[in-house]
Amino acid sequence: MATFKLAKGQSFQIHKEMELVHSGLVWDPPEGSGPAFDLDVHCFALIHPGGDANRARLYNDGSHALCYAFVRGPGNPEGSLSKNPDGSFQTGDGSMWHERDDRTGRGGPVRADDDDDEEGGHHGEGFREEFKIVLAKLPADVAELAVWATIHDAERKRQDFGKVKNAYIEVCDAMDDELCRYQLTAEFAGKTTIQVASFLKQSDGSWKFHAVGAGSNAGLGEVINAYLG
């Protein structure tokens, strides 16, 4: 399937009958001996009170927030997401799932039966940070899935998105065919946090993937607090 390459501000319509999508960040590891880029991708399920997207708030105080800050563990016993033995985590209803953390940018092994087509995508490169959304299982009140990317320990390592090579987010269907991708360009130099995109629910119940491309230096805690109101 051909890939639709999004520019900032563009959207890709997801067919209404498509019940599940995979999405993830891809980036190249640094050349030479420099420290690896540890990029994290987060996906927050949001409601729009009164239909106003500018007042977006976390659904159910973060029960559907694919973010390490919400993972239940010894240091966070009240976390809303359960962690699996392999390091992945998911929501209680199974509608949202996040692969284990990738701290190097090298990704996991690519299966031998993966297609190596000219479009590449995660078939040839391996997702670095991957999440799955079962659109058909999402709570009815969820109006948006906001996708953010951050760089772990960016200040200490003196890293920003302008130094990350070939970074993009892609969306695939249930068969792992890539539907669209959004490349993160040099405009994010000096930025350590990006609202990369949002999945937006449409009036007919379908979804579209919208390339937001809003960079900042806000910490992840600030992003979460803004959604908590």
Rank of each mutant, 00 (worst) to 15 (best):
N84Y: 12
V212R: 05
S82N: 12
Q13E: 02
F127G: 02
R100W: 04
E125T: 04
G219T: 01
V134N: 10
C180P: 07
A136M: 12
E187L: 09
N76S: 07
V134T: 15
A143R: 05
F131H: 05
F70H: 12
V21P: 07
G121W: 09
K208G: 00
A146F: 10
G75L: 02
K16Y: 11
H15K: 13
S23H: 09
A226V: 10
A56I: 06
T193A: 09
I151S: 00
N84H: 08
S11Y: 03
S88V: 02
C180I: 05
D176C: 12
G229H: 01
A56K: 02
Y68W: 14
H152T: 01
K208M: 01
A197H: 03
V164A: 01
G9R: 04
M96C: 11
H15I: 11
E99Y: 12
E170I: 05
V212P: 01
F127T: 05
E170V: 00
A69E: 14
F44P: 00
A218Y: 14
L200K: 12
E125R: 04
N60Q: 13
I224A: 02
D204T: 00
R128Y: 09
S95L: 02
G32C: 10
H22R: 14
S33Q: 14
G108P: 03
S33D: 15
V164F: 01
L66E: 00
A45E: 04
A174M: 12
P109N: 11
D102Y: 13
L145Y: 02
E187A: 03
I133C: 09
P74Y: 14
P85R: 10
V41M: 13
L46R: 04
G215F: 05
E78F: 15
L135D: 05
A214L: 05
W27T: 02
A167M: 01
D40N: 06
L46Q: 05
G94Q: 10
D116N: 14
E17P: 02
A226S: 15
E178G: 07
K163R: 07
F44I: 00
V147W: 01
P35Y: 15
E99K: 08
E222V: 08
A211Y: 03
G126D: 06
I47C: 00
Q90G: 00
E118W: 10
D28Q: 11
Q202E: 10
G190Q: 07
A214T: 13
L200Q: 08
L58N: 01
D40E: 12
T185N: 09
C180K: 00
A136E: 15
A7S: 11
G94S: 03
T104Y: 11
D115S: 14
L6P: 03
Q10I: 09
G24P: 10
H123R: 08
S88Y: 02
G108Q: 14
S23A: 11
D141L: 12
D116F: 15
L145Q: 07
L25A: 14
K163E: 03
G87H: 08
G221V: 13
R100V: 09
H22L: 15
Q90H: 08
L46W: 03
H22G: 13
L6K: 06
A218D: 15
A53W: 07
P30A: 08
H48S: 10
D177F: 12
F199A: 01
E129T: 06
Y182A: 10
I47Q: 01
D61I: 06
G124N: 02
D173C: 07
N225T: 15
